[in-house]
């Protein structure tokens, strides 16, 4: 017989190490026609970070994402970056790109200020124009400003920056300190069916609500959540590297290392909590790693809700769940007075 259950789990996850240096650099160059190029030492590993960095640069420059071209992943041409690790790209590389873009923009402001007859600090970049704050009708096209900067005045708008979360050493004895710049939070809820004859767990749906600060690109955030739930589900139910007694892996191929297929995946309902973190670029924090963190306990809590057994060792394979169900029945038998 199948039993339905639901379970919930919440989590927190840190963004931006402060315990040791993990900087990122960035260079932003505005071209003669008002488009721009960003140089970053990070690498695209599938999460869509290059698009996000482009959107950050575009926002800072008053341009559109498609106006930005990103050059990445080459130690000869790109500035230092600690890399695509620890959910740090949007937060740390993003801050570096934002600051570098603002420096390039400041050069544009200098030029535009002269063209508009105002002070640079009265300007803002928006809609491909540089305009006087509160007086948007007084504006010049960024293309014209940049062209003049390059060819008229000789101050090409190039900005470079590095960013490292402010470092705070930790007390080695007590571990006290401020180890990270900020944290993100999430809650996931899973609904499952548990077959009490085979122990099989079917995850029917997962609702995942994540705080990532500002979602620079909500579509990519959803993609990260989907992939995180996928990995969390594998962690919860299937995945385990098995070793023999002599330390050799037994199931070292994709036939026997069980990762979820389409038929094992539930529907996922993603939710992005509205938030703005003042330490991140345009309020952004992170979502890459955190998305997988609460899935497994949400599922095992749902298993408990369904059949009343607590799984304390992952993965909750059908065999383990059935064994737990049998053990519970045996306990209950004992408790019934003869």
């Amino acid at each position: 017989m199948k039993h339905r259950g639901r379970g919930l789990a919440s989590m927190w996850y840190p963004v931006g190490f402060t315990g040791y240096a993990n900087p990122s650099g960035a260079v932003v160059k505005v071209n003669e026609d008002g488009t721009a190029v960003v140089l970053t030492g990070t690498v695209e590993t599938g999460q869509g970070s290059l698009g996000v960095l482009g959107q950050i640069a575009a926002e800072a420059l008053g341009l559109a994402p498609n106006d930005i071209h990103i050059i990445s992943g080459d130690t000869d041409t790109c500035p230092m970056d600690t890399g695509a690790i620890a959910s740090r790209t949007t937060y740390i590389t993003g801050n570096a790109v934002r600051i570098a873009a603002e420096k390039a923009r400041d050069i544009l402001f200098e030029v535009a200020a002269e063209m508009l007859g105002v002070k640079p600090n009265m300007l803002e970049a928006k809609d491909h124009k540089i305009q006087v704050q509160s007086f948007p009708s007084r504006n010049v096209a960024i293309a014209d400003v940049s062209s003049r900067a390059h060819n008229g005045i000789g101050t090409p708008p190039i900005g470079s920056a590095t960013w490292n979360p402010p470092m705070v050493p930790m007390d080695p004895e007590t571990g006290q300190g401020k180890p990270f710049g900020t944290y993100v939070y999430a809650t996931q809820i899973a609904e499952v069916d548990v077959d009490d004859e085979t122990g099989e767990v079917e995850v029917l749906r997962v609702t995942a609500s994540h705080d990532c600060g500002t979602a620079i690109n909500p579509m990519l955030v959803e993609g990260q959540i989907d992939g995180g739930v996928y990995m969390g589900l594998g962690f919860a139910l299937y995945e385990e590297i098995l070793f023999d007694k002599a330390g050799k892996q037994i199931n070292c191929n994709l036939t026997n290392y069980i990762m979820p297929t389409t038929l094992d995946m539930p529907a996922i309902d993603e939710d992005i909590v509205e938030n703005y973190d003042h330490t991140g670029p345009f309020g952004a924090k992170a979502v890459g790693e955190p998305s997988l963190v609460p899935t497994a306990p949400a599922i095992t809590n749902a298993i408990y809700d369904a059949v009343g057994v607590r799984i304390t060792a992952l993965p909750a394979t059908a065999e383990r769940v059935l064994a737990a169900i049998k053990a519970k029945r045996a306990r209950e038998q004992k408790q019934i007075p003869a």
Binding site: M170, Q176, Y183, T187, D211, D277
Partner: peptide, 27 residues
């Protein structure tokens, strides 16, 4: 636990949103 004072905490909101979207209360 490390003595860090937190800002930008949204864990309550994440639970409220998830519960609402999932339909936990109505279930």
């Amino acid at each position: 636990a490390t003595g860090q004072v937190l800002h930008s905490v949204k864990v309550i909101e994440s639970m409220q949103n998830a519960v609402k979207k999932f339909g936990w209360e109505t279930q």
